[in-house]
């Protein structure tokens, strides 16, 4: 038996619904239809009255979740695509994220964002907007890269007493498989060393972890040992694990599928440069998507976002510095 990243997300939600009567799921097409990607397949049947279709109203979806959280519930909101969460942005960044700080009443909501590029999805079904949410205080932003993390971090998200933006990568939905679901996991907020090495550190997250791992395998044939750090959570950001890795390798390449301006890669480089300047043997580098909307045609798309080839090329340049 094997289980996909998408099935892990479904199973985590089934688990949460089973374990905690305060959990419910609310989103577009999540009911009898089982969601646009089938992440809630059969859940309405298994948990009657707790998996509910919403109108196409992202603002009101999140607002309703905040009200329900005030009332002690633990809602999971499914955005059909991360791109559409901008319509609910106000409720996330002004209502949900400020509630605890203003009133001392926690706001335990999980907003699931199917995000990231897949071939042919174009400008409005491909975006990586995790950094925008990470910018706001009062939110936790998670970016699982593995089937195991998709499962355990979603369970963790529902258990956290704060609003969590759960960024699940659509490219990984069907591509990634595991033998079984995990019984234990790293805590939320801790990064993971996905591959050990001593020559260069690649810090990345979500689908780019896999591009980085392929690049590391390729570079190993050239004699380079690349360490890959999977951030898992971009807020909080596990600076300690990143810094320890850079201390071992002396070289840092940050890779993100998001746009470059002011994002996660910029944040990691800012922290390492200001707090660990002396650890660096070369100027830290980063690789992001190009600063244009995400293109539709596969040829353009493949050139727009980082791939194992462009990651390997960037790493080679940095290793020669």
């Amino acid at each position: 038996m094997s289980i996909t990243y998408l099935e892990a997300i479904r199973e985590a939600q089934a688990h949460a619904l089973r374990d905690d009567p305060r959990v419910f799921i609310y989103g577009q097409d999540v009911g009898a239809f089982g969601g646009a990607f089938k992440a809630t397949k059969n859940l309405q049947k298994e948990f009657p009255g707790r998996v509910l279709d919403s109108p196409i109203s992202e603002d009101a979806m999140v607002g309703l979740a905040v009200g329900a959280a005030i009332e002690g519930m633990r809602p999971i909101i499914e955005m059909q695509f991360a791109d559409f969460s901008t319509v609910g942005f106000n409720q996330i960044v002004n209502q949900a994220s400020t509630l605890f700080w203003r009133t001392n009443v926690p706001c335990p909501i999980t907003v699931r964002l199917p995000f990231g590029g897949t071939s042919g999805s174009g400008p409005f079904h491909s975006q990586c907007i995790e950094a925008i949410y990470a910018h706001y205080p009062g939110l936790v932003v998670l970016t699982p890269a593995t089937v195991e993390d998709a499962y355990s971090m979603l369970l963790g998200a529902v258990a956290v007493n704060d609003p969590v933006i759960f960024c699940e990568h659509k490219f990984l939905y069907y591509h990634l498989k595991a033998e079984k679901l995990p019984s234990e996991a790293l805590p939320i907020g801790k990064a993971r060393i996905a591959r050990e090495g001593r020559d260069l550190t690649i810090v990345t997250y979500s689908a780019m972890v896999h591009e980085a791992l392929v690049a590391a395998t390729e570079l190993a044939t050239e004699g380079w040992e690349i360490e890959v750090v999977d951030l898992r959570s971009i807020k909080p950001l596990d600076t300690d694990t990143v810094m320890a890795s850079v201390a071992r390798t002396g070289r840092l390449l940050c890779v993100g599928e998001a746009w470059p301006w002011g994002g996660v890669t910029a944040e990691v480089i800012a922290r390492v440069t200001s707090e660990g300047y002396g650890l660096l043997d070369a100027p830290p580098q980063r690789l992001n998507a190009k600063d244009t909307p995400v293109p539709y045609h596969p040829n353009l798309w493949a050139a727009h976002r980082p791939t194992s080839r462009s990651v390997a090329a960037a790493a080679r340049n940095l290793l020669r510095t």
């Binding site: 009200g67 009332e71 002004n94």
Partner: peptide
């Protein structure tokens, strides 16, 4: 409920409280 400044934003929060109470 303490208002945020964005007008109309509290209505769906009231909905959420009512929705949750109905579930209970």
């Amino acid at each position: 409920l303490p208002m945020i400044s964005h007008l109309g934003a509290m209505i769906s929060v009231v909905n959420g409280v009512l929705f949750a109470r109905r579930m209970k």
